[in-house]
Every structure is written in structure tokens, then in C-alpha cells.
Design a protein around this nucleic acid. Structure first.
Lengths: 138, 138
DNA sequence: ATGTTTGTTATACACAAAGCATAACAGATA
DNA sequence: TATCTGTTATGCTTTGTGTATAACAAACAT
């Protein structure tokens, strides 16, 4: 698993790490049942503190993306096992409306806005044709 | 102009204020050439410090949403005057991919994802039919 | 001219978040 | 038993957020 961290970014390290792992799960690069590296080894590879990685893992556990067993480490949950919660819906709506507002201020038309949304979605799983229920990976 | 601030939110006050004003401009509720309230009066109305409002105005000025003249205060720039910068494109792409990743993990299909994007866009300007070039407001 | 309102700048302070360092504990495994 | 795992506990520094107070300069109304 390759993760890249940007120390210049203004987004916290644990948030960057969280986003990258969620993306990995969504893309299928991190398969269900796979083990994430231990907090110590990942922290060592990235050159950051163990607690920063641990904070990321706690968030992932809290959101249901991984389960954590002692000694086995963090294991990726099946992608379809997570529901679309109200909290996620609300957060998504808020972020989208914020983006749409700025896009409108820059006179980006609905077409282009939606095209960018579509290409963002497809950039995560370029190979997926219709992957909603079954969970067929490859 | 009505702005609501949530003190319980984890997003900073100046960011909330920024988002609300940008939304106001995008929606047309804040028209081009209109004056924003002074930093002191808005701070007074919201019950927050003048510097917090000033920080928001500085951000808005920096991004080109308003111009600031002494004594006249902050005036809203015409909505079409802002270009789609590379910085905005990059930020939009990053946020969309992050949202799409989580949506995919929750097995939200492309249809629903795009439908939510569309409804977010339209919720900003419910009346706009095709407002791309001319800047016809009403 | 004078006083008021405007944005602007400068300090200082309190509080929380982020990140790091170090250490220790408990469970699982070889 | 030794080693790896996640976990918890302190302590510390740096940065971001928000407030408080004060002062300055430009524009405007009287």
C-alpha cells in the first residue's frame, strides 16, 4: 500500500491519511479482509508519529471502514457493509452546496459542474461498470 | 442579509461566515454592487469579534468575491467576473473525489451520487434556467 | 474644520487542536 | 518467554481560532 503525505498541506496529517485509505477501499486496491499495516510500521514508513496513525485508525473504526483486532491489526470491512447514514448525507449535502456556490460564482454551468462530479466518481473506480450490490471486485 | 452562525459546529466561525456570503452571492440574494455590512456592525449583530468578521472579508477580497473601499465597505463583485482558476479546479477535484470515495464505500451508485450533485447545484439557484454567459439576473 | 464611520494594523491573551516524544499496559502469537 | 499488536497515559511544543483593546488613516456628513 502506497500512501503519500503532504507536509505543506493545511489539512491535518491524520485527515490526509484517512482520505487516502478510504479512497483505497473505494477503489478496490484495498480489498475486503486485507490487513492495514500496524500503526508503528506505517508511522515509521511515513516518518510520522504513531499516535497520528492511531488517530486515523480510530476514525476508520468509528466510521465502520475497518474492524480492529488485537495482534491482527486493522482489517478492511467489505465495501458494501456500510450504510448511507444521515450524517453522511448531511455532510455530503453541505459540502456539495458549498462547492456549487463557488462554482456558480465563477459562472460554471450545471453541465460542467456535473461532468466534473461524474469524472471524480469514475476516477475512483475506472473499471467499474455497475457495482452497486454484488461486490464483484475484479 | 441574514446569516446564521452555529457555535456548536466544528467549522471555524470565519469559515461559516465565508460560506454563507459566497452562497448569498451565488444565489443572487446578494446582488452585484451591494454593500456588505461593516465589520463592526456585522460582528455586533452576530455577537462575535470584529476581527473574526474582518478575517472573512479578507478572504473574500483575496478570492475576488468582493472589493473593499474605505468608507464604502465591502462591495459585491459581479458574479461572472471571477474565472475558474486552477486552484479552484484542483480543490474542487480533491473534495469531489473524497466524497465519491466515501459514497462508493457506502455503495452509492453513480446515478444517486450525480442526482445529489445536481440537486445541490439547483438548490443554490432554484430559478436559474441557463445562466452561463450573459449574467442576466432576474 | 470637526466629528463620525470606515477599513486596517498592532498587541496581548486564552483556549483548543495537531503533532510529537516517551512510557507503560494487556492481549495474542511464535 | 520474547515479541508483536493495539491501547492508554502524560507531557510538551506549535499552530489556529477567537477575543479584547487600542490606535491610525481615509472618506464622508455636518
Amino acid at each position: 500500500m502506497i500512501v503519500s503525505i503532504d507536509y505543506e498541506s493545511d489539512t491535518p496529517l491524520y485527515t490526509q491519511l484517512y482520505d487516502e485509505i478510504v479512497r483505497g477501499i473505494a477503489s478496490g486496491r484495498l480489498e475486503s479482509g486485507e490487513n492495514l499495516p500496524s500503526v508503528r510500521s506505517l508511522a515509521g514508513d511515513l516518518g510520522i508519529n504513531l499516535h497520528t496513525v492511531n488517530k486515523t485508525y480510530q476514525l476508520l473504526k468509528q466510521e465502520g471502514f475497518v474492524h480492529i483486532h488485537r495482534q491482527k491489526g486493522a482489517v478492511v470491512q467489505p465495501a458494501g457493509s456500510l450504510p448511507v447514514t444521515d450524517a453522511f448525507r448531511t455532510r455530503m449535502e453541505r459540502q456539495l452546496e458549498s462547492l456549487a456556490s463557488e462554482a456558480l460564482c465563477r459562472s460554471m454551468r450545471e453541465e460542467e459542474f456535473l461532468e466534473r462530479c461524474r469524472s471524480a466518481y469514475r476516477s475512483i473506480r475506472p473499471q467499474a461498470r455497475d457495482t452497486h450490490e454484488g461486490g464483484r471486485e475484479r
